[in-house]
Design a protein around this nucleic acid. Structure first.
Lengths: 223, 223
DNA sequence: ACCTGAACACCGTTCAAGT
DNA sequence: ACCTGAACACCGTTCAAGT
């Protein structure tokens, strides 16, 4: 963080860039042009600089993305959580999802580290703690965290991908083609649901799903 | 599929490439060098051809990847499923996971289509059908499928990413650094678990997680 | 210390041309 | 119909040099 702070005196000319400026510019590109347009080269252009200048402030692109998440997580409001451990477990998991839902493109990077790199550790602490207070052994609490984590990551990934796809709405998707070819004798259930499939699968039922999963987990681990 | 079959007679010289040959070469690269080395250019080199020749047999790279999955899914043994619907639901979901576990790199492409593009539709039919036989309304059955789908996708993604990372085992991961900085007063639970975290999170508990989720879902939707 | 220019080793895809 | 070569518009990153 040092290189960004303008020190007293005029020891040489001031730096043109700083980590802060770089991260902010990256966030701007992300907001305005989407993840797939965020490249080191594009970022340098945004800053009227060169790609290599960035590497003075950031080790590589992954670190830049993690910095973005760090900023986002630290700005995220930290709401009061319910007292009741079961409710708190659900609320923490929901919170984790909410933070990530703001930057779903990070799913891939995050996945590699169980999210533990970032300043959202307190959320995970809450999930594990609430599970233990619900009567789980520590090992079971970690299992619960993992299931929740997989579920959240999966939903984010699917959402991200279907968002990408909606952009290219030229021809019918693979799904639409597969559904058109459905025969009632071989796939009766899917056939019956085919007309409503899109509607049914695009409903936002994240919170409900989370609740059901958590209840299922707790009933199993700590009956 | 037509261009690959060697027709009778000798109407012009035989084609050098075919969809079959291309897909098989792609699979070879995948097996031997991993997903990140599978590019259209690399594939063309493998076939002693040019990148553009491939585009005569495949619309784009995504289609090629879907073809790979298609082949894999069609070769996959189709085991007998239990009669009992609850058991069948679990078994179908496990099967879906097993098929995909063989090609986790496809998670990103698959996510965009709810997997419905491929010849594994019968698995999904089974999941939906078993849910309905367990007493769910069709809408609830679709919800159950979605939760399972998110969970599977998430686990695949995480596994894929942590596999990539293990390759570059040079310096400590972000997770390790975050754990090293843990203080017992701010994160008591994680602090207590930190020594065993890697071990606990790398256990293969997929099947157990799936079972717990399914039971939770069914108890909620069809008590 | 901070920044630049040129280069390396890649991508997916298009376009115009060859046989 | 099947294939090629050259090109377009990109990537992340390294290296040697400038001030």
């Amino acid at each position: 963080m040092q290189p960004s702070s303008p020190r007293s005196g005029k020891l040489g000319r001031p730096a043109l860039l700083s980590r802060d400026v770089i991260v902010r510019a990256a966030q701007r590109i992300l907001d305005e042009e989407g993840y797939e347009n965020l490249s080191m080269r594009r970022l340098a252009r945004e800053l009227s600089s060169t790609p290599m200048a960035l590497y003075h402030y950031v080790r590589d692109k992954d670190q830049l993305l993690l910095l973005l998440l760090k900023v986002k997580a630290s700005k995220f409001p930290r709401p009061p959580l319910p007292e009741d451990p079961r409710q708190r477990l659900i609320a923490s998991a929901q919170l984790l999802y909410d933070i990530l839902a703001d930057c779903p493109f990070l799913a891939e990077i995050l996945a590699s580290d169980d999210l533990l790199a970032v300043s959202a550790l307190w959320v995970i602490e809450n999930i594990v703690d609430a599970s233990i207070e619900c009567g789980c052994a520590p090992e079971q609490a970690v299992d619960i965290y993992r299931v929740i984590w997989y579920y959240i990551t999966g939903e984010l990934l699917v959402r991200l991908a279907s968002g990408r796809q909606r952009a290219s709405l030229d021809r019918p998707t693979h799904r639409e083609k597969a559904f058109a070819a459905l025969r009632p004798d071989s796939h009766p259930r899917l056939f019956a649901l085919s007309a409503r499939w899109s509607e049914l699968t695009s409903r936002d039922s994240h919170h409900q799903g989370l609740e059901v999963i958590v209840n299922g987990l707790l009933n199993h681990q700590a009956p």
